[in-house]
Amino acid sequence: MNTLLLTAGRVLLALYFLIPGIMKFVSWDMHIQLMEKHDMPFVSLLLGLAGIFQIGAAALLIANRFTWLVALLLVGLVLVINVSLHDFWNYSGLEGAHEMQNFIKNLGILAGLLILSGYSIPERFKAMS
Results as ranks from 00 to 15, higher is better:
residue 1 M to R: 10
residue 1 M to F: 11
residue 2 N to Q: 14
residue 2 N to C: 12
residue 4 L to S: 13
residue 5 L to Y: 15
residue 6 L to N: 12
residue 6 L to V: 12
residue 7 T to E: 11
residue 7 T to P: 04
residue 7 T to W: 06
residue 8 A to E: 13
residue 9 G to D: 12
residue 9 G to Y: 11
residue 9 G to R: 12
residue 10 R to V: 02
residue 10 R to S: 06
residue 11 V to A: 08
residue 11 V to Q: 04
residue 13 L to P: 07
residue 14 A to S: 09
residue 14 A to V: 08
residue 15 L to M: 11
residue 15 L to P: 04
residue 16 Y to V: 10
residue 16 Y to E: 07
residue 17 F to I: 00
residue 17 F to H: 00
residue 18 L to F: 07
residue 18 L to K: 03
residue 18 L to T: 04
residue 22 I to R: 01
residue 22 I to A: 14
residue 22 I to W: 06
residue 25 F to G: 08
residue 26 V to F: 00
residue 27 S to A: 08
residue 27 S to R: 10
residue 27 S to Y: 06
residue 29 D to S: 05
residue 29 D to C: 06
residue 30 M to I: 05
residue 30 M to R: 09
residue 34 L to D: 07
residue 34 L to Q: 06
residue 35 M to A: 07
residue 35 M to R: 03
residue 37 K to R: 05
residue 38 H to D: 11
residue 40 M to R: 03
residue 40 M to W: 01
residue 43 V to M: 13
residue 45 L to D: 08
residue 46 L to F: 05
residue 48 G to H: 08
residue 49 L to N: 07
residue 49 L to P: 05
residue 52 I to W: 09
residue 53 F to M: 09
residue 54 Q to R: 10
residue 55 I to L: 10
residue 56 G to Y: 11
residue 56 G to D: 12
residue 59 A to S: 09
residue 60 L to T: 02
residue 61 L to K: 00
residue 62 I to Y: 10
residue 62 I to W: 11
residue 64 N to I: 01
residue 64 N to P: 05
residue 64 N to S: 10
residue 65 R to W: 04
residue 65 R to D: 01
residue 66 F to H: 02
residue 72 L to K: 03
residue 73 L to S: 01
residue 79 L to I: 05
residue 80 V to C: 08
residue 80 V to S: 11
residue 81 I to C: 04
residue 82 N to M: 10
residue 83 V to P: 08
residue 85 L to G: 07
residue 86 H to K: 11
residue 86 H to R: 09
residue 86 H to A: 14
residue 87 D to S: 06
residue 87 D to W: 08
residue 88 F to W: 11
residue 88 F to H: 05
residue 90 N to W: 10
residue 90 N to V: 13
residue 91 Y to P: 08
residue 94 L to V: 14
residue 96 G to P: 04
residue 96 G to F: 07
residue 96 G to A: 07
residue 97 A to P: 15
residue 98 H to A: 15
residue 99 E to C: 13
residue 100 M to D: 14
residue 100 M to I: 14
residue 101 Q to H: 15
residue 104 I to S: 15
residue 106 N to F: 11
residue 106 N to Y: 09
residue 106 N to H: 14
residue 107 L to I: 15
residue 111 A to V: 14
residue 112 G to Q: 15
residue 112 G to C: 15
residue 114 L to D: 02
residue 117 S to R: 00
residue 117 S to A: 08
residue 118 G to D: 03
residue 119 Y to A: 07
residue 120 S to Y: 00
residue 121 I to Y: 01
residue 121 I to A: 02
residue 122 P to G: 12
residue 124 R to D: 08
residue 125 F to I: 02
residue 125 F to R: 02
residue 127 A to Q: 00
residue 128 M to V: 02
residue 128 M to H: 04
